[in-house]
Design a protein around this nucleic acid. Sequence first.
DNA 1: ACATTTTTCCGCCACG
DNA 2: CACGTGGCGGAAAAAT
Length: 327
Amino acid sequence: METLAEPHVVAVLAYPGMSLFETGIVTEVFGVDWPGMDGPRYRLVLAAEGTKALQTVGGGALRTPHGLEALASADTVIIPSVSDVEATTSTKLATALQDAHARGARIASICSGAFALAGAGLLDGRRATTHWMYADRLRARFPAVEVDPHPLFIDHGDVLTSAGSASGLDLCLHLVRQDHGPALANQLARRLVAPPYRDGGQAQYIEAPRRATGDDPIASTMAWATQNLDQPLTLADLAEQAHMAPRTYLRHFTRATGTSPVKWLIAQRVEASLPLLEGTSDPIEKIATTVGFQTAVTYRHHFTQHMDVAPSAYRRSFRGSTTSRSR
DNA sequence: ACATTTTTCCGCCACG
DNA sequence: CACGTGGCGGAAAAAT
């Protein structure tokens, strides 16, 4: 568990024509030494095939001393997308990935990086995701891969895939959470000013984007619900607010949102409770009811479900780490 | 931690 | 006929 002596090595692939965004996410999470963050560290290694300077999007050039052998010897390997989803994965890269995997390293991809993992055969017979726009191509090129375009990321333990670029951040935070627990992951998310937790199963693609205008009945009931979070809201209440039958409301809601009303409500309530845990010393009971859970039991249940820690533990770890360091 | 009751959610289908 | 609606039943999830 403790990796203080031997830092966990994260290798991220650099390639010609790369965008700096996905790599930047990885850098931010695993490469930056955040001041005031005690606890375990990672060592980030940028690895490339060959030692020539690589062109990046925007006309820059990038050179790294680390070759693919750095991939093969890392603890975690991240492929932050590929330059061309039609191109076959080079044998050298495929071999490096297979070696790393066989050695027990964790292999993760962001966005179109899944094509490299699939090219190395690491996704055969497994469920995997990628950017929703590439899902069909991935399926067509690698029929052995069970492509699911819906979730933000899929974690098999040894192999992980994530969706569009920004979901890479969710994936990276997920890895930190796996390695060092929710407290550190949440703390890091705070520093990055990222939402603390997005579940891997959350929908990546929302068919009917919510309009901010008031004429969207779903959007307005959602706004209404967040205003009235403290009181018990049922599906029937929301439907009535939207002047729809429950069945119709349900359909519209899932289409617009990617989740169900109750799941969304629970997530809202858990989220609303975070600042109360962080900033007040209100008892859990009180927080539970102010964010709309009938009882503290249900609050604890759902909080733990979402955050992987009990509310009290979250509060404790949050306080401990922020106050003890800054003064 | 577990069982019971209640609510949600989704496929199916009839209706307008 | 295509399309949105909404009631019904039962599995699944949430509340108690």
